[in-house]
Amino acid sequence: MAIDKNARYLESHEYAKPSGEHMIFGISDHAQAELGDVVFVELPAVGKTLSKGAMFGTIESVKAASDLYAPVSGTVVEVNEAVKNDPSLVNKDCYGAGWLIKVAPINASEFSGLLDPAAYGKAIGEE
């Protein structure tokens, strides 16, 4: 399973990745594979403030639904409309075109407290 080296992770498989002054959130390659074909994503409105660990949406396959949790605190500045219209982007390119939301982080130090790629790899049983 691919693990994006520039991202940091939650054990619940969401990632946060710096993008300029912002962070993008998505789910890991491992998570999309476990979930199977993604059929629907529900994402928050732009402007909503999320605290670290707060639920920010849901992602669904045919037979499963997972809540999405914010890896770091921040205010939503952009939502990936493309993925709402074509949820299969999460399966095809979870670290790229299949990103979910972009936030303006509130507390920069939270990022470094997340699992780094090596630790996340260990958490999902990969070295």
Binding site: E60, S61, V62, K63, A64, A65
Partner: peptide
């Protein structure tokens, strides 16, 4: 079906 009890249980 992800709306329903057999998948979403308490949610």
């Amino acid at each position: 079906s992800t709306r329903e009890q057999h998948i979403r249980r308490e949610k």
